[in-house]
Amino acid sequence: MEADHAVVQRILSGEKDAYEVIVKKYQARAYRAALGWVGNTQDALDLSQDAFIKAYRALRRFDTGRSFFAWFYVILRNTCFNFLRKRKRELTISLDFAPAESVATEDEARRAEVKRQVWRAIASLPDDAREVMVLKYFEEMSYKEIAEAVGCPIGTVMSRLYYGRKKLRKALEGFYA
């Protein structure tokens, strides 16, 4: 697969269509990260699209020595922050954030309930802890990637994860012996 910085060079030299390569590569990650911030599918799709458009317009400022997603993530995060500030609301969890799941069996019903509880617990965290939890759980990013995206030391990532997981553990107490 073509490296991000090579694709960016092509875009900057006038091949607008090449941006599709970048968008397709990161759209799902962008969506999941936005979902972690705003909590519902439609807003997450809209905001991640807005962030891609902003990133496109700022592409000349992208340092090709850095990871594209880490750079893009800052734009995405600011877009989500502004959205939440404008709406003057906190994360809202809509039940349509995931495709409808069959809960025919007891195990599936339990899994759906765990998922709801995980969301509730994450939603109740302060922004900084919620952010690292989202990047760890939804993006499965390494500590180094999270630290770069969030702009803090790895030790801070671990501390915030500890705090977040403590809350999660409390919320899910009933789900394991």
């Binding site: 941006y19 397709k24 799902a28 799709l45 496109y56 954030f97 765990v114 998922k115």
Partner: peptide, 26 residues
């Protein structure tokens, strides 16, 4: 417990219009 949980993603048809929306606005 949390490893059992995987969050759903939008369907393929959503991704089909996703890039088109970005391209049109750009």
């Amino acid at each position: 417990v949390t490893d059992m949980v995987r969050f759903g993603e939008p369907e393929d048809k959503v991704w089909e219009v996703y890039w088109r929306g970005i391209y049109n606005r750009v």
